[in-house]
């Protein structure tokens, strides 16, 4: 069995090299890397800022009065604890949380998701403007900025690029390759040998996982991005690429030719990519995205890459991805057994 799977995997990788799929996998990380070099700066307007205050902390009365007076620019939410503030911050219900300073109530620490974000910039601008309006206040209200997400823009966008490349292999590369093998009757030719359907499917999934992992590895090598929990991270990337590779193979079985597979792939690719990747920028998307498997892949990725989170603390997402992968693998097996559109 292993020998057959190995022969099929090597053949699939050789085909991927021949039909230029490999070039795509190599090109995208280089393209992204070069793009990131160019997009470190941006300027966008931010309207009303949602800022959180912790009920337990003591804030300077002057600060509170001025914030209240600036309700046009600042929407204030009082939260019970710092933990709740962090939760709302992650949900994008808040743009920042002001943590009181026990030694000096006149000064506070601003907690934000990312230091280099429009929201952070806007908060600092608004508070500076308020402070300037108050005469005789020599010290800065915000003495420090703490972030939940580590790293610069390059690192902060890394989860999006990893998500993109895993979905690309799953929804664009694999459906087209499966459909091509069906269209050219190569799959039927392979089934004229004693290999089993499961062996063929495993080989395809492994190929998808290898491609996705190579692309992810290139991201890390080029950017020099380290990860706190390497083992967990690799297992998680394996789970995600397994899920979306099996999903893509299933989509390939729904199509009789490459053209329809590519179309179907894009139809699945964008709705999985955009809501998850853009959930950082929208509260509404954050509410909708959890229904997608891609979000269950993306959120832990962000946690590991940006917050030094541990995959071991996210068993639900891990199990969810393996289950979705196993389910779509089974559906692909059923269609293959029925020689669907072959």
């Amino acid at each position: 069995m292993m020998r057959n799977i190995l022969a099929l995997v090597l053949n699939d990788l050789a085909v991927a090299l021949k039909n230029k799929t490999f070039y795509l996998v190599l090109f995208i990380p280089f393209f992204v890397f070069m793009t990131l070099k160019l997009i470190d700066q941006a300027s966008v307007e931010v309207s009303q800022i949602k800022i959180g205050f912790i009920e337990d902390y003591v804030y300077a009365p002057q600060l509170l009065n001025n914030v209240k007076a600036a309700e046009k620019n600042l929407a204030v939410t009082w939260v019970e604890s710092e933990k709740e503030g962090v939760h709302l911050l992650k949900e994008k219900t808040l743009d920042g949380v002001l943590l009181g300073n026990k030694k000096d109530p006149e000064r506070t620490t601003l907690l934000v998701l990312k230091r280099e974000s429009l929201q952070t910039l806007a908060i600092i601008e608004v508070f500076s403007a308020l402070q300037n309006a108050v005469e005789g206040n020599p010290s800065s209200w915000i003495s420090d900025i703490e972030t939940l997400h580590a790293g610069g823009v390059q690192r902060q966008t890394l989860p999006t690029w990893v998500l993109m490349v895993v979905l690309l292999v799953g929804f664009l590369v694999l459906p087209a390759q499966v459909a091509e093998e069906k269209e050219k009757k190569l799959l039927l030719g392979l089934l004229q040998t004693p290999i089993s359907e499961v062996q063929w499917l495993i080989a395809k999934v492994i190929m998808g996982m290898v491609l996705a992992m190579i692309a992810t590895l290139i991201f890390h090598l080029l950017g020099g991005f380290a990860v706190a929990d390497y083992f967990g991270y690799i297992i998680f990337i394996a789970a995600g690429s397994f899920c979306f590779s099996a999903y893509g193979i299933f989509l390939g079985f729904l199509c009789s030719n490459q053209a329809s597979a590519r179309t179907l792939g894009v139809i699945f690719y964008l709705p999985h990519l955009l809501p998850s990747a853009l959930s950082d920028f929208s509260q509404q998307l954050t509410a909708v995205a959890p229904f997608l498997p891609s979000y269950q892949f993306y959120e832990p990725l962000k946690s590991v890459l940006l917050e030094d989170g541990r995959i071991a603390s996210m068993p639900f997402e891990m199990i969810y991805l393996w289950l979705v992968g196993a389910f779509t693998f089974y559906l692909a097996y059923v269609l293959m057994k029925r020689r669907w559109l072959m």
Binding site: R3, K18, K184
Partner: peptide
């Protein structure tokens, strides 16, 4: 089959070796 279903990108020998290996 009526239309040869072989891996077009590869050589005659590669195709035969692949299928021999699977057999």
């Amino acid at each position: 089959p009526e239309v040869p279903n072989l891996f077009d990108f590869f050589s005659v020998e590669y195709n035969l070796k692949l299928f021999a290996s699977l057999f």
